[in-house]
């Protein structure tokens, strides 16, 4: 999902930066609030950020013969909401852009938007909807994490399609980019979902009070 440095025209680079910035600022405010009101959540918040760190650093092979990154954003999104996850993703992506030349400063806004905003928002809403439909906690977390990972790459495809319409229009290039990103991502998304459920299940059992509080707090 990293769009390489310089690979978005200036208009789109600025457009996505401006779109993402309010979410990142909201994330800073929200994280500060959580730290102040509930210092006992600090370690759990750090560990959901660590999940993004580990998972997004892994380049994994896919059935399509290419390799790609998981995102790891599902856990933070379900536990702390999309605002906090936007900030955590921003930190991970800036680390990768500056130190690893993965993604870039000009494309950071677009990358934060796909991985840190649309993915986590989808996870959060799906989780809430599934819980309202009385799906079990683990199943809700699993589906939220899988879709959060996968939709990230759909958004990247859309961002590239908007910037580079093919001869047959935006839809034409959207299909091309989906072919690159979305199919390769399916097995990775499922694997990510399994890992997140395992950790979530552990968290739920080792800190039942905290987990119940965190999940009940979500409005």
């Amino acid at each position: 999902m990293h769009i390489a440095e310089g690979f978005l025209p200036p208009f789109w680079a600025i457009f996505w930066w401006l779109t993402s910035l309010p979410f990142i600022i909201y994330g800073v405010w929200k994280t500060g609030k959580i730290f102040k009101k509930h210092p006992e959540y600090k370690l759990t918040l750090a560990v959901s950020g660590a999940f993004i760190f580990v998972l997004s650093s892994l380049k994994l092979p896919s059935v399509t013969g290419s390799s790609s990154h998981p995102t790891g954003t599902g856990l933070a999104a379900v536990l702390f909401g999309p605002g906090v996850t936007a900030l955590l993703s921003f930190i991970v992506l800036i680390f990768q852009a500056l130190l690893l030349a993965h993604g870039g400063i000009t494309t950071l806004g677009a990358d934060v938007f796909s991985m840190g905003i649309v993915g986590p928002f989808t996870a959060y809403l799906l989780f809430r909807a599934l819980r309202a439909l009385k799906a079990s906690l683990n199943i809700s977390v699993f589906i939220a994490a899988v879709i959060s990972d996968w939709i990230t790459y759909v958004v990247t495809s859309l961002q590239l399609a908007l910037a580079y319409p093919a001869a047959n229009g935006i839809l034409g290039s959207f299909t091309i980019f989906l072919g690159v990103f979305a199919i390769a991502q399916i097995p990775l998304a499922v694997a990510e979902g399994i890992l997140i459920v395992i950790f979530f299940d552990y968290l739920k059992k080792s800190r039942p009070k905290l987990a119940a509080k965190l999940l009940g707090k979500l409005k």
């Binding site: 390489a4 310089g6 290419s66 400063i105 790459y153 319409p165 390769a184 991502q185």
Partner: peptide
């Protein structure tokens, strides 16, 4: 190969004249 690089190639496939500006 990484999908990130495949994405780069797809861009250049659609728009061979694109100049990386940064």
């Amino acid at each position: 190969t990484g999908t990130d690089d495949a994405g780069k190639n797809a861009i250049l496939g659609i728009n061979p004249d694109y100049r990386v500006w940064f």
